[in-house]
């Protein structure tokens, strides 16, 4: 809580542009560290992100990114560029990238719970369905 408040005050002062702590959380069913690192690098290369979450499962890759407040005007562009990069980094994966907060929450829930393969399949299906829904 305190850390959050601290972050907010920094943002409000307008100096938080790049100093915001960047968090990446991932869940890889097969625990392939190399893949995780490749993905993390894609995130770290983009200066506009504040948070990212990703779940690897059976050649599926569901990613969600949170964009820093001041970059949110370009949110859709940033999402697209991440999507492009992730897709080229993981050509053999079925990649899905979202910038929606709800998707981040759902992915983080999955990452926290570390569910079994069957549950994960169901969860990911749900997340993807959510993300596809339009306004």
């Amino acid at each position: 809580m305190m850390k959050k408040l601290w972050i907010i005050s920094l943002i409000l002062l307008g100096v938080a542009g790049c100093s915001e702590e960047f968090k990446v959380s991932t869940y890889h069913v097969d625990d392939d560290q190399q893949e995780i690192e490749t993905l993390t690098k894609v995130f770290k290369d983009n200066q506009n992100l504040s948070e990212a979450a990703a779940v690897f499962f059976d050649h599926q890759l569901v990613v969600s990114v949170q964009v820093q407040q001041m970059s949110k005007f370009k949110k859709e562009k940033i999402r697209k560029s991440i999507e492009k990069k992730v897709k080229s980094a993981f050509p053999d994966h079925d990649v899905y990238v979202s910038s929606d907060l709800k998707i981040t929450w759902e992915l983080k829930k999955i990452i926290d719970e570390q569910p079994t393969t069957d549950e994960l399949k169901k969860d990911l299906k749900k997340v993807k369905a959510l993300a596809k829904e339009e306004t």
Binding site: D100, L101, K102, I103, W105, K126, L130, A131, E133, E134, T135
Partner: peptide
Amino acid sequence: FMYFFSFTERTASN
């Protein structure tokens, strides 16, 4: 709406 129901940032506005 996002937290307790299955709405995304976009769909929660309605």
